[in-house]
């Protein structure tokens, strides 16, 4: 919408395979639009840090309280799978960074390729996560079929924590480690899913040629989101799999 003869600013497309971008009417310049969106997104990422931060605070609180429980609990996780997943996420962070770079340099094919590889990384990560959850299920450390059964007050039993192997029987409140593990990785996993969805969404735009050297904002922002997912995992991996 324009008024008093002010027309919206249009960023031209750098080539025939691209489309121009029209700056939103309440901004004066493309720089203003870019910086506003970017600042807004950084603020959003700050809220994500604090949201996850609550979980990390809970982790440290109980790591301090039940150090032995956490040490033994951590040994029940497969650190090799965790390390593989760390590598997968780091690689996908790299492909994401390369994807943003390709958009910045108006390389449409490469943009799509690197974004696609990032989605692949997300899927591999989720697949490995599924394998890990299944193992926990098998050992009765997180029995998913009884997850929502509620606490059995009379017998003082938690239906989802059955510990078939008795690996946690010598440490207090063994379920706490797995509850924290499940909560942190599930919320992180949800972010992986959302991130993958967002990447697929920008891939659609990229296929239409909407992102190029003149305008690559959505790719940039989704990239930041994906790196945040990686960032959180960088801390989750040593804390959960290699409990210090």
């Amino acid at each position: 919408m324009s008024h008093d003869g002010h027309h919206s600013v249009v960023i031209p497309a750098p080539g025939p395979e691209f489309v121009p971008h029209t700056v939103a009417h309440h901004f004066d310049t493309p720089v203003q639009e870019f910086q506003a969106a970017k600042l807004g997104f950084w603020l959003f990422l700050a809220t994500e840090i604090l949201l996850f931060g609550g979980l990390f605070a809970a982790y440290f609180y109980y790591h301090e309280t039940y150090a032995e429980t956490f040490r033994v609990g951590g040994q029940q996780l497969d650190w090799q799978l965790g390390a593989v997943n760390t590598t997968v996420l780091l690689l996908s962070s790299w492909t994401m960074a390369m994807g943003v770079r390709s958009a910045q340099t108006s390389q449409k094919g490469k943009t799509l390729l690197f974004l696609g590889l990032t989605v692949l990384g997300a899927l591999i990560f989720l697949g490995i996560k599924y394998v890990e959850y299944s193992a926990k299920n098998q050992h009765g450390l997180i029995v998913f079929s009884h997850l929502f059964d509620g606490y059995d007050q009379a017998n003082k039993q938690l239906p989802w924590f059955q510990d078939y192997g008795g690996v946690m029987k010598d440490v207090p409140h063994g379920h706490l480690f797995f509850a924290i593990y499940l909560t942190m990785t599930a919320i992180h996993g949800l972010h992986v899913v959302i991130g993958a969805g967002l990447i697929i969404w920008v891939m659609k735009g990229a296929a239409k040629g909407r992102f190029h050297a003149g305008y690559f904002l959505p790719v940039d922002l989704v990239g930041l989101y994906w790196h945040l997912v990686d960032l959180i995992w960088i801390f989750l991996f040593p804390l959960l799999y290699l409990v210090p």
Binding site: A58, Y61, Y62, Y66, L147, F148, G150, Y151, Q153, K156, L158, W160, P172, H173, H175, L176, A179, I180, T183
Partner: peptide, 11 residues
């Protein structure tokens, strides 16, 4: 699902 971190019954 009784995370337990706020629940004194669960440590």
């Amino acid at each position: 699902y009784q995370v337990g971190i706020f629940d004194p019954r669960l440590g």
